[in-house]
Simulated assay, not measured.
Amino acid sequence: MATERIAEIFERAGVTGCLHVVDLDGGSGPGRPGARCEVAVRADEQVVIASIFKVLLVLEFARQVVAGQLDARERVLVTADDRLGGWGVAGCADDAEVSLRDLAYFAMSVSDNTAADLLLRRVGVDVLPMLAAELGLPRTRVVGGPRQLVETMLADVGARTEADFARIFPTLPPERVRAMRMFDPAQTTSSTAREITRLLGLIWRDEAGPPEACAMVRGWMAQQLFWTRLASGFPPGVRVSGKTGSLPGLHLEAGVAEYPDGGRYAIAVFVRAAQLATRRIDVDLAMGQAARTAVEALRGD
């Protein structure tokens, strides 16, 4: 069975994982009438989703743009006080001026936390929980944004600045790290693998808002630069659009694989490793392998 093969993949990589893969066309795609529609491994377990929440964020931004509530070309000045560290505008040494639309691009393509934080301020922090409820995602909870996460991390280790955190964090024993609020689904932004694939399905079927807004989100997800997780598992010709999430020991990704024959599969793979490293190519590749194993089971390949 596919679930057994996936369990073996996770075991070899030394991780525990949650996975949900669903055929977005209900098993009725080309050559697959009445086929199996989903593969689930602990798909209803509440888990931390970290930067996966940015899919919901840019969806709300796109909806507000289409509704005329926001101008995608509105300019935003990113200053030193805004920077949270990391990729994109987060790593700029000087002030940078970009549009709201480009903040959304950076938030999705390189998971830019500064861009996401600025976009969240403009969209409205309180709006995302309402959007999740509207879309039928009762177990998807959004607790603030990247800045609140950073502030929580600093407080949990007794650091005043990010420099202090970088000095203190590596000295902490694993049990102290695991006790931090950023790892507790009840105290931070979290969801389930099944709800995240539902969100992706709504976006890909133009049911998460106006079709133009859904198309904007699909376009940004297709531009993600990180390829070592879901995309690594699929052959050339399969288009994989995705969004990563990472915390020490947590390797997360959600996306959609689209085959040349029209088959479309929403995927969520969330794994936890015993080691607290954020960069482990073996774990990333195992996520892609697990995703492909599930998709091939649905396709009957």
Rank of each mutant, 00 (worst) to 15 (best):
A257S: 08
S51L: 04
F270D: 08
G255A: 13
I49E: 03
E162T: 06
V240A: 07
V177W: 15
Q187M: 12
E151T: 02
G88N: 03
G68C: 14
A215W: 03
G201S: 13
A215D: 11
G300C: 05
G17T: 05
I9P: 00
R264K: 15
R160T: 06
V41M: 11
R36A: 07
W87A: 06
T192P: 09
S191H: 12
G27Q: 04
R101Y: 10
R122Y: 02
Q223S: 01
D94H: 08
S232N: 06
L298Y: 00
G27R: 01
P235H: 15
D117N: 12
R36Y: 09
L172D: 14
A90P: 01
E11A: 05
D156H: 06
F53Y: 04
L70F: 11
G242D: 13
L225D: 04
R63H: 10
A179L: 14
G201Y: 07
S190E: 14
A159M: 04
C214H: 01
L131H: 03
E207Y: 08
T197D: 04
G136L: 14
R101N: 05
P138C: 15
E11H: 13
A257T: 10
G26R: 10
G144L: 09
R122D: 01
D81I: 11
A159H: 01
G68N: 15
D102A: 03
L285I: 14
L120S: 06
L119V: 07
T161D: 10
G263Q: 10
Q64E: 06
L120G: 02
V78Q: 12
A163I: 12
W87Q: 08
V39T: 09
L154V: 05
G237L: 11
A62N: 06
E45R: 05
